[in-house]
């Protein structure tokens, strides 16, 4: 299991969390490359269906941030 790398889907709010992720880039803050971002206009847009879909399609974790 030591090589195990989870694939995480992140739903990020355009106005805050997504902007934060961009700023992490500008500041060159390094973090693991496991995250795949989906930009949404509000974290409230995230339908539970999206989360279930993500897990069923093979993602190992889901992050909703906003």
């Amino acid at each position: 299991m030591t090589d195990y790398e989870p694939k995480i889907i992140a739903f990020l709010c355009n106005w805050c969390a997504y902007a934060g992720a961009d700023l992490a880039g500008v500041s060159r803050l390094q973090y693991p490359a496991n995250l795949r971002t989906v930009r949404v206009m509000c974290s409230g847009r995230v339908d539970p269906v999206f989360i279930i879909k993500a897990l069923r399609e093979g993602s190992d974790g889901v992050l909703v941030s906003g």
């Binding site: 961009d22 880039g25 060159r28 390094q30 490359a33």
Partner: peptide, 20 residues
């Protein structure tokens, strides 16, 4: 977004950045 949210934050791991 392959710069701010990829190459800039995974600069030490070229392969992973490419895959992402």
């Amino acid at each position: 977004n392959i710069r701010n949210q990829c190459t800039w934050v995974h600069s030490s791991s070229k392969e992973e950045a490419t895959e992402k």
